[in-house]
Design a protein around this nucleic acid. Structure first.
Length: 547
RNA sequence: GCGCCCGUAGCUCAGCGGAUUAGAGUAUUGGCCUCCGAAGCCAAGGGUCGUGGGUUCGAAUCCCGCCGGGCGCGCCA
């Protein structure tokens, strides 16, 4: 148990004594901005004061008195408690309790920060899910970075996570792609007679056509063109994702839903639910019963189904495959599907909870280079690709950047900043802290892994204790980030940890003469390095030993 | 018009289940390498937290209106 949890318990007991009528109270401990306010601050007296209509400051005094009345042995790790301002309780903990975080990081190694889980769930994260009609764009890149990090965070919480990629391999978009490739194979270019309506214009279409012809295909065989193009573009997307360090466990084909009759089954289920009706020759679902703003068509008057049906059928398979928690990462331009998919699942009445699945919707990414927005990629024609970004800035910078903003914020990706391999770039700042530690160990000639068990007591400087507290926060940062599907919190945490370490490193020498102090400082370095490495790993960013 | 998201320092962004003096990076200015990596550190200046109300002892944070921006509002996917 860490110092913070212990303090929370002490406070709970003190509150029960000072204000017995308060009942169950939540104790929130925060790290104050100002170090003069102690190691932790608690506002429970302010919260309670409001609820019990008592003067918060007096209440705080009573709580502190209750704390002080405890015998010294029962007070651990509390060293000092005082009332401040309107009724804050500022707390200080004993140094050895702070230093325990280093020992824990060293003992747990690459598992530090991860939860040993009791309530293990099967969780699925669906992300990217791009149709194979062209290269992945920057939006997919953001989804890949977010989705992979969210999946990693959930794994770190002890869940069994499946990363899944869903794509349409047989719909109207694929047909357009096939026709575009076929046209190119016949030397028809966009704008010329015979070019398909709303065809794909990117240069890659011509590449695919050329490769298809070279593989001895006939331009007349549209089915063969379609298959070739889909396989070719899927392979390219996979190569890009691999270069980005992202892998999937399952690739789910929309066509399989039709092939296995799941779409028809879903329609039958909706009809059986009594939530459908016929109008204008089409079949409608009363999604307005589930807070949609209008009812939706299920079966068009021409007899075919709207995309909404396979979407629902697909999510039914997620439920049936045992995923009780599903996170879908998508661009915010898909937000209208959220209500619809959930409504469809509810209408089926098969026991799926109302908030299923969860969605993480991200805002758009604007790419800026040389102070101007970039909209055109050479290969894709109309949009900047993920591959462009990786080529310009490198995998680590792109992943770190794309994950360091909360999902629902607009994102301006500054290529010049990301490709800057110097002082301006936040990615290298964190990586540099890691490399620095490695370099100290290289200098010393010993092994960082052997620091476990070293006596930490010689660490007494303010900076050293503060670093210990920072390291102690890591598990909680991961827990919250996983709960809220917010990997950006990890990126911010790493920056702060790296910053504190750089400050310490500049102020103090690690390899000092005094052996006990030197070993303790090396242990500190090793613990910081471990924490940085664990955090970076979750974000899919390398933790280099040299740069 | 309706729905969702966003509006915090010149720029890019944290903070938003209220609370002690609003943070970071970058840019600007001034310092720090005979010593473990200067891809680093230290310091300074820079904000009526879009705006107007409301709730509260206390609001960047909660509620309402307005303004500005993005996205979505098909028997397209």
């Amino acid at each position: 148990m860490d110092a913070k949890t212990q303090l929370a318990q002490l406070l709970r007991a003190a509150v029960a004594q000072a204000a017995p009528q308060a009942g169950e109270t939540e104790i929130v401990l925060e790290r104050p901005r100002d170090a003069a306010h102690g190691d932790f601050a608690c506002n429970v007296a302010l919260q309670l004061g409001k609820r019990l209509r008592r003067n918060p400051r007096e209440l705080a005094v009573a709580i502190v008195a209750a704390l002080s009345s405890l015998p010294a042995s029962a007070r651990h790790p509390l060293r000092e408690a005082e009332v401040a301002g309107p009724g804050f309780i500022n707390l200080r903990v004993a140094p050895e309790a702070k230093l325990a975080a280093f020992a824990r990081a060293l003992a747990e190694g690459s598992r530090y920060g991860h939860a040993r889980n009791d309530a293990r769930e099967r969780v699925q994260v669906e992300f990217v899910s791009a149709n194979p009609t062209g290269p992945l764009h920057v939006g997919h890149g953001r989804q890949a970075a977010l989705g992979d990090a969210i999946a990693a965070l959930l794994q770190a919480q002890g869940h069994e996570v499946t990363r899944e990629f869903y794509y349409n391999d047989a719909g109207a978009q694929i047909e357009k792609l096939a026709l575009s490739v076929q046209a190119r194979a016949r030397a028809i270019r966009p704008g010329m007679p015979g070019w398909p309506e709303e065809g794909y214009h990117g240069e890659y279409v011509e590449e695919v056509a050329r490769e298809y012809l070279a593989a001895a295909g006939s331009a007349d065989d549209l089915e063969a063109v379609r298959k070739f193009a889909v396989a070719r573009l899927r392979a390219e997307q996979d190569a890009d994702l691999k270069a980005f360090g992202v892998r999937f466990d399952v690739y789910f084909l929309e066509s399989s839903l039709y092939a296995q009759g799941r779409v028809a089954q879903t329609v039958a289920g909706l009809v059986a639910s009594g939530k459908t009706y016929e109008k204008d020759g089409a079949l409608w679902l009363r999604t307005t019963d589930y807070s949609d703003d209008k009812d939706r068509v299920v079966r068009k008057s021409d007899g075919s189904f709207t995309y909404f049906v396979p979407d629902v059928a697909y999510h039914v398979t997620k439920w049936e495959r045992g995923f009780r928690r599903v996170v879908n990462v998508q661009g915010s331009d898909h937000h209208s599907t959220v209500t619809r998919v959930r409504a469809g699942l509810q209408a089926l009445g098969i026991g799926i909870p109302a908030g299923y699945p969860q969605y993480v919707l991200h805002n758009l990414v604007k790419v800026v280079r040389g102070g101007e927005e970039v909209r055109i990629s050479k290969r894709a024609g109309t949009y900047v690709t993920l591959r462009d970004l990786i080529d310009w800035a490198g995998r680590d910078a792109v992943r770190f950047f794309l994950v360091s903003r909360k999902a629902d914020a607009d994102f301006v990706f500054d290529v010049d900043l990301a490709r800057e391999k110097s002082d301006e770039n936040p990615v290298y700042y964190v990586q540099y802290a890691h490399a620095r530690v490695c370099s100290v160990f290289a200098q010393w000639g010993g092994d960082a892994a052997r620091m476990n068990g070293v006596d930490l007591a010689p660490l007494a400087l303010e900076r050293e204790l503060s670093l210990a507290q920072r390291v102690a926060e890591f598990p909680q940062v991961l827990r919250t980030a996983a709960e809220e599907s917010a990997p950006h919190a990890v990126a911010f945490y790493l920056r702060e940890l790296a910053g504190e370490f750089h400050g310490y490193y500049n102020a103090e020498r690690i390899l000092v003469e005094d052996e006990a102090l030197r070993d303790a400082r090396l242990a500190l370095c090793a613990a910081v390095r471990q924490t940085l490495a664990n955090g970076l790993a979750l974000l899919g960013v390398q933790a280099p030993e040299k740069m």
